[in-house]
Amino acid sequence: MLEIKNLQARIDEKQILKGINLSVKSGEVHAIMGPNGSGKSTLASVLAGREGYDITDGEVLLQGNDILEMSPEERAREGVFLAFQYPVEIPGVNSTYFLRSAVNQIRKHRGDEELDAMKFLKLVKTKMKELGLAEEFLKRPVNAGFSGGEKKRNEILQMTMLDPSLAVLDETDSGLDIDALRIVADGVNRLKNQNNAQIVITHYQRLLDYIVPDFVHVLYDGCIIKSGDKTLAHDLEEKGYDWLIKDS
């Protein structure tokens, strides 16, 4: 599904990613943990194609295709989805209009029939119910005036609607109370199947009680310094990162 080879990136002359290697297969969930400033969000941004990063070396292959040459929209159409740590408020742009445009853009790219307003509404309302989002949500501008929890649930709603092959969740748990966390995790778990993969970036082990990873990686100073199974997350919860950092 995804092959990251020796990925190096910098921003404003500062080297952030210093050679990341990661292999993610279909059906897998990978968690990336690490202290602040280790490069987790940069990795998410680079995967999604945010401007401002200088890729100095390495490659990222999604189903064999190098995505680093692609624009953000091409990546999204190829199946990359980034759930933003800080979803952007877009006043004046209606949520329904935005989401339907995005869904149809991606369906078109896949050769699927575009959804008319009725079909779209029917589908989105079912998905919203699962995520505990009120229907009036659709009438509001994208993320504008949403609470932190609503914004994160909106990310998951978009993810559900766009059905990506690779979902990257950047600190989706931050700012969520336990109920909202459970709803978000349920949404992510429902999406999981043998044809897609998920990368969950998080600070805290608690999200991983709900989204159980197959692999856990520790990112520190721009490199993955340790990989393991889900028990690694528990070790980190207990011992923090210092023991790994001293070893590295």
Partner: peptide
């Protein structure tokens, strides 16, 4: 970037934002 990350090309994204602004 947010809109492009959802599959909308940059021209569509810009227009959507301007439309939103009005």
């Amino acid at each position: 970037f947010y809109l492009r990350a959802r599959g909308l090309d940059s021209q569509t994204a810009r227009r959507m934002l301007m439309h939103g602004f009005t």
